[in-house]
Amino acid sequence: MLALEGLTKDLGENFSLGPFDYEFAPGSCTVFIGSSGCGKSTLLRLVIGLLDPDAGRIILDGREIRAADFEEARLRMGYVIQDGGLFPHLSARQNIALMAEHLAWSKSRRQERLIELCALTRFPESALERFPAQLSGGQRQRVSLMRALMLDPDFLLLDEPLGALDPIIRFELQEELASIFRDLGKTVLLVTHDLAEAGFFADQIVLMRGGQTLQKGSLADLIERPEDEFVSRFVSAQRGLRGS
């Protein structure tokens, strides 16, 4: 169980984030949505400890994660970003297995897990020896996802995981991701600017603006019961864009 308590971060220039108080129920998928610059990616970076908060706490299974604990806590979190963040000098296999290797998993254990993940993400095993530059955009995101899943973490933090992909691949991967979340029962925190994608994945949607939460609820809540004028504008703009 992951929770945020009064988490805030001052980003300067009159822009501060939070305070955020959230609980992420096990197996749930929370989607953070908003226009670019609303702070949704920064929130994810706070949760995985890439940024230090100014105040507040991140609670993992009832215990606060302090700065010194993050290295261990990160082993229970998988993190995927828009362009994959793959290490260009390592093959797909090395990218995925790097941390397991560091933790001294045996070769056979690593190989077993790799085969499992390839099947799960429908990534061809024959492409494991390729380097990131030799992979398509969709394959790169699959490798990035496998890397995040390698240690079988309880939490997945996904920052625009489909953002850089063309629509057809995006649609395919959306389906696959949703089934992976469902089958593995991971607790997911996902960031997107796309309302349809949010609706597709989310148990709970958090709409953000200027570093603050505007509304929290289901897609239907946002559409039918907007709590703020910006919420209805954001919703109608996105729906208009889709021509529906």
Partner: peptide, 27 residues
């Protein structure tokens, strides 16, 4: 920055990041 972040986020400690990611990439 995204690669630096990824290296931290997967849980590699500083020494291993230097050895496995930073030095090879700066090679």
């Amino acid at each position: 920055g995204t690669i630096q972040d990824s290296a931290i986020a997967i849980g590699l400690p500083a020494g291993a990041r230097l050895r496995r990611i930073e030095l090879p990439m700066a090679m």
